[in-house]
Every structure is written in structure tokens, then in C-alpha cells.
């Protein structure tokens, strides 16, 4: 039933995905280049502050690429879930008038963000090429191996995770307006507790604190991605199992919650 509905409304899904991407860049002079420029600039800021002013972990092969990987993945997660969260309440005018499958709205926002995220990976390629040609002793080129071909795996897990969280948030946001503010704060916490610009090794926290940080599925996803494109090694399958399991549970929970509550959305939006 779900699949039939998805097939019937695949045009709508495609239209909304295209719309989200187009609208995002419509009124900016640089257009789609912002997708590349934004991660580039924010990474430069992070690299400048945490690479120059603080001493980064010397075991990191290439600090700028290390930061960029973390930033790109974190930014996709936070942007897509935030957009998904607002998608149902934001489409109130349509949902009140026309019968459409409601999950189209959170889903299309995750997908459109995923596409812009994939485009922004060009910056990562640029970084890798740049440092490979530069061969500077302070930032040696990343060790590229065949394991780089596994990099879509963590990205796919990240997509599942974002979809699950997006479904949960979009449902909650219908009933409770303040979820949006709470989630902003949560994302800030998540940014600092995910090793984007630091490494877990350098933290002098106790065991419990470390365990808490490692419970974060985003940590495992980011590390898996860095294994692929930076360290040139196979990621640990424990990380994969944990992150994938976590994502699937959230996706299932989100799907169930959304499915159970969607008939009541109309009374609240």
C-alpha cells in the first residue's frame, strides 16, 4: 500500500525535490556555487581557529580534510532534519485542501538536502586533489586506497538516520511548536559532541563521558567516512553495525509514529 502510494505520487516527490533545490539558490547571485562555497568557507574558519590557535591532534593525517569531512556530514544531518521538521507545518495550506500522502513532505526535504550535499562533495574532491598536488609536509595528502569506493556506505546510513529523525521531528513539530527551538539547542550540543574539529583521543574525559560520545551514531558515521577517504582503511564493522542498527530503529520508530499520528495532523496545523 505504501509502495503503491509512493508510485502514484512519485511526480509530486520529484517536483518538490526539484523545487526545494531551485528555490534555495534562486535569489542568490552565485546560485548553486553556494553549495560549494559555504562548506569551503566554514571549513576554512574551523581550520584557522582550531588548526592554528589550538594545536590539533598530530595523529590526524590532514587536518583540513579531517574537518571538512566532519563538517559536510554534520551539516547535511542538521540541515535535512531541520528542514524535514518544518516540512509538514510549512505545507499546511496544501495539506488542508488536497489529499496527498503526508510523508512526501519530510521525505522530499531529506532527498533535496541529500542531493545538494552530494554536490558539495565536490569541495572534498577539490581538497584531496589540492593536497595531493601540494605535498606539504604539515598537511600530507590523504592516503587514497580502494577503500574510498566504500564511502557511499556511511552516506547511505546517514541518509537513513536523517530520514528517521526527520519523520519523528516533523510529527512532533505538528503537536508541539517549541520542538523547533529545543531541536536547535540539541543540534548545537550535537555539533560539539561529534568530533568535527577535534579527535576523541585528545579528550581528557573519563570513561563514561567517552562512552556517551561514542553512543552518538553520527560519530561512527563520520569516522567511517574518514576511514574511506582520509585514512584509506576499512572502517570497523562494529561502527557500521551500530550506526546502521541505530538508524534503522529510528527509521522504524519515525515511520510508525508518523503513520499513527498523520490523520490527526490536519487538526493541529
Amino acid at each position: 500500500m505504501f509502495l503503491k502510494e509512493l508510485r502514484d505520487y512519485r511526480y509530486l516527490l520529484r517536483e518538490i525535490v526539484a523545487k526545494n533545490i531551485k528555490i534555495q539558490y534562486r535569489n542568490s547571485v552565485l546560485g548553486v556555487f553556494w553549495t560549494l562555497l559555504q562548506p569551503l568557507l566554514t571549513t576554512l574558519v574551523l581550520v584557522f581557529i582550531f588548526g592554528k590557535l589550538f594545536k590539533p591532534d598530530p595523529s590526524v593525517i590532514n587536518y583540513p580534510i579531517y574537518v571538512l569531512c566532519g563538517r559536510l556530514l554534520y551539516e547535511f544531518y542538521s540541515q535535512s532534519t531541520k528542514r524535514a521538521m518544518r516540512s509538514v507545518t510549512g505545507s499546511a495550506s496544501v495539506l488542508k485542501k488536497v489529499r496527498v500522502p503526508k510523508y512526501i513532505y519530510p521525505l522530499s526535504n531529506i532527498i533535496s538536502n541529500f542531493i545538494t550535499f552530494l554536490i558539495s562533495l565536490v569541495v572534498l574532491v577539490g581538497f584531496i586533489v589540492y593536497f595531493s598536488l601540494l605535498k606539504s609536509p604539515s598537511n600530507p595528502p590523504p592516503s587514497l586506497t580502494w577503500y574510498a569506493l566504500l564511502s557511499p556506505v556511511p552516506l547511505l546510513v546517514l541518509f537513513l538516520l536523517s530520514t528517521g529523525v526527520g519523520l519523528i521531528l516533523s510529527t512532533l513539530a505538528v503537536f508541539f511548536k517549541d520542538v523547533e527551538y529545543l531541536y536547535d539547542v540539541f543540534c548545537l550540543l550535537l555539533f560539539y559532541s561529534t568530533p568535527v574539529f577535534y579527535t576523541l583521543k585528545r579528550l581528557n574525559g573519563d570513561g563514561i563521558m567517552l562512552l556517551c560520545l561514542k553512543a552518538n551514531p553520527l560519530y561512527h558515521i563520520v569516522e567511517m567516512f574518514r576511514d574511506c577517504v582520509l585514512r584509506g582503511q576499512l572502517f570497523s564493522y562494529i561502527s557500521l553495525l551500530y550506526a546502521l542498527g541505530f538508524s534503522l530503529v529510528l527509521l522504524l520508530l519515525g515511520g510508525l509514529l508518523f503513520w499513527k499520528k498523520q490523520d490527526r495532523f490536519i487538526l493541529y496545523i
Binding site: I16, K19, K22, V94, K96, K97, R99
Partner: peptide, 29 residues
């Protein structure tokens, strides 16, 4: 449904783009 026409429009979208969006909202390719 002709309930309140134009409910499916996106204000930032052009008329042309909205035709396709509105059509898709009603389930048309």
C-alpha cells in the same frame, strides 16, 4: 478539489513552475 484555489502554489515559484507543481499535487505526471 476546487476548495480555495491556489492552495498548492509556492509563492516563490513562477506561474509556469507552479502549473507542474499543482498538477503533481493532484497526482498528475
Amino acid at each position: 478539489p476546487l476548495l480555495e484555489l491556489g492552495a498548492g502554489f509556492d509563492m516563490n515559484y513562477s506561474g509556469r513552475e507552479n502549473i507542474f507543481l499543482y498538477g503533481a499535487t493532484m497526482g498528475f505526471s
